[in-house]
Design a protein around this nucleic acid. Structure first.
Lengths: 135, 135
DNA sequence: AATAATAATAGTAATTATTCCTAAAAGTCA
DNA sequence: TGACTTTTAGGAATAATTACTATTATTATT
């Protein structure tokens, strides 16, 4: 058991077909996918791939910084091709999740942010609302 | 399957011993508890209570607005006696979660918040950092 | 207090998401 | 090519949560 989610991992990543296929699907997806969504997609091209391979690789690539983990509150883990800092907005009707650039009119004053002895080092911001399609 | 998490529930809540005991523990806890933490606590006084009763009641009381669900990203669901609007801060060392009042120096500009066609109706904000004890 | 109606319970089974295990196969490097 | 090490498939294991069901408890009403 490891305290940190982002353990330093010196071992090299071999470029296997499976890994390539998984990465491809995540990168070309328009939404943020769950492990089993990725599995279903990759399976069309590599019918013998196993679910555990998909899980393992998504986690490994997230550790390596190639992908980003997306753990929205109360939901299944998803993976995001966009590893830059950004927020997310979830539609309460259809459940779609979209990216929100950090500067999209959102201003979070973290200036001298020391909430009663708590030293803030980061935050995550999650919007909910109704997306364009659902209005 | 129901689209909404907060279904209108006209049926009355009967005040059973189990429900009373569960509510008591959540309200007197200093931390935000998971279902099985509540279970272990209530069990000391009501050794025959079942885990599913704890789960069912926590959910029911959350639906009724007596408790608040707390689903921090990538974590087990917890329950919060404080149903007023507030944020949370999680210590990356010890994992403790504390409340952050909405006005604690945090300013989120939601003025004309329409992120490219997405109508924002709410948001959740989660801090991480190091708590007083762990510094 | 007794009755009738129905909500809640204990105990367990089922589900879902994820991680772990292992022998066999496949990349990588010299 | 051969040696070394990572990765794989497939399935078992785990953890959190939800669903099921016969029995019991609560509440409102006589």
């Amino acid at each position: 058991m490891n305290a940190s989610n982002h353990t330093y991992r010196p071992e090299p990543l071999r470029m296997t077909n499976q890994r390539k296929g998984i990465l491809e699907e995540v990168q070309k997806a328009r939404q943020h996918l769950t492990a089993d969504e990725v599995y279903e997609l990759v399976r069309k091209k590599q019918p013998r791939i196993s679910l555990s391979t998909v899980y393992r690789n998504l986690e490994k690539m997230a550790d390596a910084g190639i992908l980003a983990r997306l753990e929205l509150s109360g939901n299944q883990r998803r993976y995001d091709w966009n590893t830059d800092m950004h927020h997310h907005a979830r539609c309460v009707r259809c459940g779609a999740v979209r990216d929100v650039p950090v500067d999209a009119g959102v201003e979070l004053d973290l200036g001298s942010q020391a909430i009663n002895g708590f030293a803030v080092s980061g935050f995550r911001l999650e919007f909910k609302g109704i997306c364009e399609k659902c209005r």
